[in-house]
Design a protein around this nucleic acid. Structure first.
Lengths: 212, 212
DNA sequence: TGATAAAATGAGCAAATGCTCGCGTTTTCA
DNA sequence: TGAAAACGCGAGCATTTGCTCATTTTATCA
């Protein structure tokens, strides 16, 4: 599958000086901190600016709107997130082990970036529809690529559907409270592998890897 | 399992006259319509009142806050939602068929109440934390009861965990776009059954029903 | 060095939001 | 029937929100 580049949405203005590149990051950090502490609802441009020790006018120097700040933050997360997905089949690991590794990566990412799961979980509103699409598109693409590597018997449509559902499963589970992270990790893995297995069986795909 | 009553949160004032009971429902209908059309973010008390053709003061006659309106609406949904879960084992249907039936019920409910999935999907913010707890608690309780009926070999802890994950899977998948409802229905069912099967296997529970 | 562009500032605006309160109307019930 | 309670109303207040803009400060580079 050709690597379709993500649609470039020029939502924010890249700073051109070193000084402002730092402030740009500062603003994103402040936004992340506020989101982590109080959720997206409580986040306002004024609060972000204050938290970042930056004048409100400076924020609007780079970000044309409040939405743009969120978009930039999510873009930052997305760039880091995609790296947890392997790009090639590792012959020394089974599909199950690989999926486990990806889930580990996601859980680690979540722990290191508390704002991420907040953002990820609250991206259902129509306001964030475009952002959701971006995130979902980028990640399902990676999952589909993984499936192609490990389950070549699936066709494109099946892979796309399977990837979408896998994305949904993770999205629904990763924000779960009332369950310890370690246990959550194994439940997510079990859910993903259980689904893929059931999917392959349902579709009549008998795959050595899947049936171990 | 004893039917533990839901924690009574006196969030709104029940009307005492027939006339106002109608207006109470009218306000909830308006809120649901607005949420369905524009998402929860766009919903304001003024808009709800206007849409319901009711003075803003009347709204605050019954609802002490904006949150209370949402809570009441969710309570209404919750009461209807729990009825899709069977309370006793139907000997004529397998576990898989029963789960399929529940998923059907959820999909139908979603189609009939467009605001529900909006609300359901957007309940991650800390603002709605109590509501989430209520919903999650009530539904996982039903799921756990189902599991007890069909998989008596599981212990309470396993059932609770399994129910929580099942809830998460549905939550993550039910709001999915980019996939037709019919297909979504079968994918959710596959995901749930695949997870339960994998869970039972992982935990070393060999159950006739589960392994068909 | 000085001219020009880029960046930083923060008072403050227009609009929206959640909600109050005083007053008028309808219902209840003895 | 009459008084008390419940209901209905909507102008408008206090606050917040996203954002602008005139001005000052800092960086760039011929």
């Amino acid at each position: 599958m050709m690597h379709t580049p993500l649609p470039e949405v020029p939502e924010w203005n890249e700073p051109k000086q070193a000084r402002s590149r730092q402030r740009f990051a500062l603003i994103l950090d402040a936004a992340a901190a506020l989101i982590a502490e109080q959720g997206i609802e409580a986040v306002t441009t004024n609060h972000i600016a204050e938290r970042a020790c930056v004048a409100i006018g400076s924020l609007y120097q780079f970000f044309p709107s409040k939405e743009a700040v969120v978009a930039a933050l999510l873009d930052r997360y997305l760039r880091a997130m995609v790296t947890v997905f392997p790009t090639a089949v590792d012959e020394s690991r089974s599909f199950a082990e690989t999926v486990g590794g990806v889930v580990d990566g996601i859980m680690t990412f979540k722990a290191e970036h508390p704002a991420f799961s907040q953002l990820f979980g609250a991206m259902n509103a129509p306001t964030h529809h475009l952002l959701t699409q971006r995130m979902q598109g980028a990640i399902t693409q990676r999952i589909a690529a993984m499936l192609k590597g490990y389950h070549p018997a699936m066709n494109d449509d099946q892979r796309a559907r399977c990837a979408l559902v896998g994305y949904g499963i993770v999205k629904g589970l990763v924000g779960m409270e009332d369950i310890e992270p370690g246990m959550l990790r194994s439940e997510i893995t079990t859910a993903l592998l259980g689904y893929v297995r059931a999917f392959l069986k349902r579709e009549g795909i008998h795959d050595l890897e899947a049936l171990e």
